[in-house]
Design a protein around this nucleic acid. Sequence first.
DNA 1: ACCGGGATGTTCT
DNA 2: GAACATCCCGGTG
Length: 193
Amino acid sequence: MPPLPREFYRRDPREVAPALLHQVLVAGPCAGLIVETEAYCGSGDPASHAFRGPTRRNATMFGPPGHLYVYFSYGMHWCANAVCGEEGEGVAVLLRGLRPLAGLEQMWARRPAARRERDLCAGPARLCQALGLDRAHDGADLVTGAGGVTIVDEGPGPPADVVCTTRVGISVAVDEPWRWYVAGESAVSSRRR
DNA sequence: ACCGGGATGTTCT
DNA sequence: GAACATCCCGGTG
């Protein structure tokens, strides 16, 4: 089970985000098929945490590509990104939705509020809850597996039908079409009509 | 199904 | 002191 190589991440997040669809995120016994992503484009993107430059919180974003940037949001949630581009750019892809593949029992135990299987990892904070990702995983190396999280090229191949649309939950740069998801997937966080 | 509000704490103005 | 890359629950139709 080969992890995606460093070079996979070393490019524009708007290329990486759709390319991550149907790759497999692995954390311990848990794994999920990536079905929804968003690109955050650093200093050129007012919606990005990196827009105003490096801080203690976003330090991982400005590090080398292929690492996991995990941040704390709304006082109670964790969200995870794959750092992209070149070191110092501050660009990343937010992981927004997974189709649960393995470790389902763990996921159910960590997400008692979920009602159906498709709710386990549908949403950026939900998937972190289900896989047990938090501050301890910030900076984890997705390529070497150091830190306990990887993304492996073990999915069913590129999705047949990918939708590109605007991002969710932001108040600036709302018109940029930098969100991608697999058409027909139920684990997409914000189903829109 | 759809909407509104509360929880909760870090970060930056 | 406000904003925030969210989620959950309880209301209503």
